[in-house]
Every structure is written in C-alpha cells, then in structure tokens.
Deep mutational scan, measured.
Amino acid sequence: DVEPGKFYKGVVTRIEKYGAFINLNEQVRGLLRPRDMISLRLENLNVGDEIIVQAIDVRPEKREIDFKYIP
C-alpha cells in the first residue's frame, strides 16, 4: 500500500504536458505534475528513467496517486 509522505522508487512510463506518469510496480501508477517538481523540469525526464518520488495524495477509491519530486 502506498502511504502519503513516504518515498518510493518509480519508473517514468509516459510524459504529457500536464505531468509524468510514474509506475511503482505493475499495479501502482501515479502522476508527477510540473508544480510538484523541485529542481527538476518535465523536459529533463525521459521514459524509462528511474526516480525517487514522494506520495503526497493517495485516493485508493479512484486509484489515483499524486507524487512530488524532492532531490
């Protein structure tokens, strides 16, 4: 289970104008929005990159997770 405030290693699987989709595993995916990136820009991410993200909002009923990147 993903818990708000905890850090997780994930893989960038898709990049859109509104953010990057990060997979923690095959069943768990969330969104990293540009506003939640500190010292990292969306255009510097590539599909396949491994990054450490912090879960900031977890909505299991909608199967949605918002992430934050903190270097």
Rank of each mutant, 00 (worst) to 15 (best):
N44R: 08
N25V: 05
S39I: 10
D1W: 15
S39Q: 15
N46V: 14
N46P: 01
I22M: 02
I22N: 00
Q27H: 15
L24I: 13
L40W: 05
P34C: 07
I15Y: 01
R41G: 10
I15V: 11
E3C: 09
R41F: 09
K17W: 14
E16F: 13
E61W: 09
Y69M: 04
V2N: 02
A20I: 05
S39K: 12
N44E: 15
Q27C: 10
E50M: 15
R33A: 04
T13L: 05
R33Y: 02
R35M: 11
L40D: 04
N44F: 11
G5S: 06
R59H: 08
R35G: 12
I56R: 06
F7C: 08
I15F: 02
V47F: 05
F7T: 07
E50R: 14
P4T: 14
P4Y: 09
L32R: 01
Q27W: 15
E26P: 15
I51N: 01
K6Q: 12
N23Q: 13
E26T: 14
R33G: 02
L24C: 04
K68W: 04
K6F: 10
K68L: 09
R33M: 04
R29Y: 14
N25M: 05
Y69T: 04
P71I: 05
G10F: 03
E26R: 15
V2R: 02
D66F: 12
K9P: 06
L24A: 02
V28N: 07
I22E: 01
N44V: 10
R29K: 12
V2K: 03
T13G: 07
D36S: 07
D36A: 06
G30A: 03
G19W: 05
N44A: 12
V58C: 04
G48K: 05
E26H: 15
I70Y: 12
F21A: 03
G30Q: 01
V58W: 08
G48Q: 04
V58T: 08
F21N: 02
D36P: 01
L40I: 12
T13N: 06
Y69F: 12
D49N: 06
Y18F: 13
R14F: 07
R14M: 08
M37E: 02
K9G: 05
Q27T: 15
R29Q: 14
K62V: 12
N25P: 04
V2D: 02
G10H: 02
N46L: 14
G48P: 01
G5N: 08
Y8K: 00
I15T: 03
I38E: 13
Q27M: 13
D1S: 14
D1V: 15
P34F: 07
G48L: 06
I52E: 07
L45I: 11
I52V: 14
K68C: 07
Q54K: 10
R14P: 00
F7D: 04
R29W: 15
R33C: 03
M37W: 02
E50D: 11
E26Q: 15
N44H: 15
S39V: 11
L45G: 00
E43V: 11
V28P: 01
I70M: 13
V47G: 02
E64P: 04
S39M: 13
R41A: 12
K6I: 09
P60N: 09
D57W: 09
I56G: 07
E50T: 15
N44Q: 15
G5Y: 08
P60Q: 10
N44P: 03
I22Y: 01
I38H: 14
V12A: 01
R59P: 03
N44K: 10
I52Y: 11
D66T: 11
K62E: 11
I70N: 11
R59C: 04
G30W: 03
G10V: 05
V11L: 11
G48W: 09
G10N: 01
P34M: 08
D57V: 12
V11N: 06
V28I: 14
L40K: 07
G30P: 01
P71R: 07
V58N: 06
V12L: 03
G5W: 09
K17Y: 14
L40T: 07
T13V: 11
R41V: 11
E26I: 13
Y69N: 04
K9R: 15
I52P: 03
L45Q: 00
F67R: 01
E61F: 08
G30V: 03
I15C: 03
N25Y: 07
L31H: 03
R63G: 15
L32F: 01
R33E: 01
I15P: 00
D1C: 11
